[in-house]
Design a protein around this nucleic acid. Structure first.
Lengths: 338, 338
DNA sequence: GTGAAAGCGCTAACAC
DNA sequence: GTGTTAGCGCTTTCAC
């Protein structure tokens, strides 16, 4: 069965394609009876306009792209939910691209967007991203870009973040209050501004409390086995940490396993806070103290701002930088019995 | 900055657009020196072909759609990873659509695909889906569709599943072996074939062991608070279950919380098995016995089959029904100390 | 109120 | 080996 086109409707009704087009868009140039005839036939034949013919004319695709490091992560999957909710509402389509933390993949993806495939982009940077040419190239093609969470500070556009510095400060302060004196910070990057913010908050809290800095810049990668091994090495040292802040959700399992394998009890021997949106945080062994980010809201907000810039000309994306608060939820990995 | 088009390149080089087009696609009709001139200019001006102009001509969009109930679920997010890996490799783009278990949303999404927006579709059904007209409508437009996990048995196309019946049987048998005599099955649907298969496996195992059937068809929804409340009601009865199979990952947290609130110990008072791909299963309290599905592989396989049908004409999708095995991983929620 | 025609950017027959 | 031309399906002047 061939697809129905405007041309076919035109032939069927002895009208021009122009008339059909106008009738379908309910133009006032077309008489009511004609409109009715056209619309009746269109719905009877189940006419669906070709998605790309219109895009080619109009130079709008009603499509946005979401560029993410990964999906198998509660933060990002919840953010997608927020984005999708708004896109659906506006009748937009969502293309998804995963960088797997790979910078050259990120470059290639953004480059493709110069093809006019998408009207706008929502993005969270790779842990490796340290140069911004690909981002500026996209901007120079007038394709609006909104960052969320892992933002590019250098880019002159909208950024939706959470209060990384403050929440990291709070998390560190909480560990100090729980008696920790040797607190490690597990990171995945020394490029990302969110990593740096979290580090700053951590350092500030330590300084304010006159607690010496613990093992820092423990960079963890994508291989859980390696992470566990690296953690075990650190945890077997004499001056091992008595507290740890995992700045990424997926490191939680690695920390728990390393402790388990070494027979270290949480929170007795070691206290743990994670930046995490895991819905199972409360049923972990022990339940996990988290810094929980407003993932859904961040995705939603980023999408709303992107659509604003898509809908209004002269909308200045640069002015739209929002910070939504995260929440420290104290559970059993820092306070026994919680 | 305006986008570079073939026309502009043609003018610049005093060639026809056809020559440019051929040169860029490295056609043998074009002389080597001309090709070089064209390619040099194209890369110097950073020419990127318009994504939709070609699609309109060729009637191929190099885009597939993935239609899912949700993303915030380990199974589906891992499946997306598998799909994306293959799509990336083939240079395809991936549109993502979430049904949120809503049938009319599913209908609307599939209907839109008749616009030629996508070349093919990968899909997991809604828990509500009980009629198939929208699926047949899509097939009649010759848009290949491959189901994975939540397949439509009635559809005459490829289906990638896991061995739901067997793994449910195994899970049930395991609970029986652990001493359970009153086993509940938590489901989210009575339409889905995977739900029915899991129910069959459960019933068969009970029958084979001459264990009476426990509370069945406890349908859980999207509201965790309601699920917990419903579970608590059941668990407070005199003849409360001593074992439960959660047929969906997200119900795990609800079961654990319900037990916690009632002071029931797992696995002492109550044993739990979940169909789950949670990477944190091993660090739950207690660690969770799971039926773990080959999520990544299922996504990947579904994508591979879809691309086969996209690339070869006369490829019979119907013949491509694969079943990948799930694995029962015994942990502490059924065997103390594990 | 309706139609003819141009053109979005690209490709593919078919000339030459 | 290169150019001309005719569309893909749609919208949008501009005539009538």
């Amino acid at each position: 069965m061939d697809n129905i086109t405007i041309k076919m409707l035109a032939k069927e009704l002895n009208l021009s394609t122009a008339a059909i087009s106008k009738a379908l868009r309910d133009s006032h140039e077309i008489s009511t009876p004609t409109k009715q005839r056209v619309q009746e036939l269109a719905s009877r034949l189940n006419y669906i306009p070709n998605a790309y013919a219109g895009s080619l004319r109009i130079r709008k695709s009603k499509t946005i792209a979401v560029v993410l490091p990964e999906v198998a992560d509660s933060f990002f999957s919840q953010a997608i939910n927020g984005i999708e909710a708004i896109a659906e509402e506006r009748g937009y389509h969502v293309l998804i691209y995963l960088t797997h933390e790979n910078f050259s993949r990120e470059e290639a993806i953004l480059k493709d967007f110069q093809s006019g495939r998408v009207d706008g982009v929502l993005m969270s940077l790779t842990a490796e991203t340290a140069s911004y040419k690909h981002i500026n190239d996209l901007s120079s093609r007038n394709i609006p870009l909104v960052f969320f969470d892992r933002v590019c500070e250098e880019a002159n556009t909208a950024k939706i973040t959470t209060n990384d510095l403050e929440s990291s400060y709070k998390a560190t302060q909480h560990l100090v209050d729980c008696g920790c004196r040797n607190i490690a910070l597990l990171s995945i990057s020394d490029c990302l501004s969110i990593s740096n913010k979290r580090k700053e908050g951590y350092e500030k809290a330590l300084a304010d409390n006159r607690v010496p800095q613990g093992p820092l810049n423990i960079f963890c990668g994508n291989d859980p086995a390696k992470n566990v091994a690296a953690l075990k090495t650190i945890l077997q040292k004499k001056d091992r940490p008595d507290g740890v802040i995992a700045s990424v959700e997926k490191l939680t399992t690695d920390v728990y396993l390393a402790c388990k394998e070494l027979g270290l009890s949480i929170p007795g021997d070691m206290k743990v806070v994670s930046f995490s949106n895991l819905s199972s945080a409360s049923i972990l062994n022990p339940s996990l103290t988290t810094v929980t980010q407003p993932a859904y809201e961040m995705g939603k907000t980023a999408a709303i701002i992107l659509f604003k810039s898509l809908e209004k000309k002269n909308f200045v994306l640069h002015d739209e930088c929002l910070t939504l608060p995260s929440e420290l939820i104290v559970r059993g990995s820092t306070v026994a019995g919680k």
